[in-house]
């Protein structure tokens, strides 16, 4: 088999990214949409770390650490919004969160 190059890691990252995008665009359950966003962030992280190895410096890895920190903050805030909304409307479907619709 061919030796594993940076391109292999980029392909895996692209696949994860596209799977995350499909999840965000097509699912109705808000929690699963949030989990797909986490998939997208992980794909970006994998991309960054693969390039960090390619170029030989650690900027990619440090950026990946910041993205992980950011994902934690965003998950907390997003799930807080979800719980607050669930108390009002008792639903977790994205289609039914339409109070501001005209």
């Amino acid at each position: 088999m061919a030796p594993i190059t940076t391109l292999h890691y980029l392909v895996v990252a692209a696949a994860l990214f596209v799977l995350g995008v499909i999840g965000v665009l097509t699912r109705r359950n808000v929690v699963i949409v949030l989990m797909s966003i986490e998939l997208i962030l992980n794909a970006v992280n994998l991309n960054l770390v693969a390039f960090s190895r390619m170029w030989g410096n650690l900027h990619g890895q440090v950026f990946a650490i910041f993205i992980i920190v950011d994902a934690a903050a965003e998950a907390a805030a997003g799930l807080g919004i979800l719980i607050a909304f669930f108390r009002n409307k008792e639903t977790i479907n994205v289609d039914e969160i339409d109070l501001l619709k005209w």
Partner: peptide
């Protein structure tokens, strides 16, 4: 990819923290 620290942070924060929250 020779990034052990990022791997450790990923396990602690993502798998051990964020997923418990989820």
């Amino acid at each position: 990819l020779y990034a052990p620290f990022v791997a450790g942070v990923q396990i602690i924060v993502y798998a051990g923290g964020i997923m418990v929250l989820f």
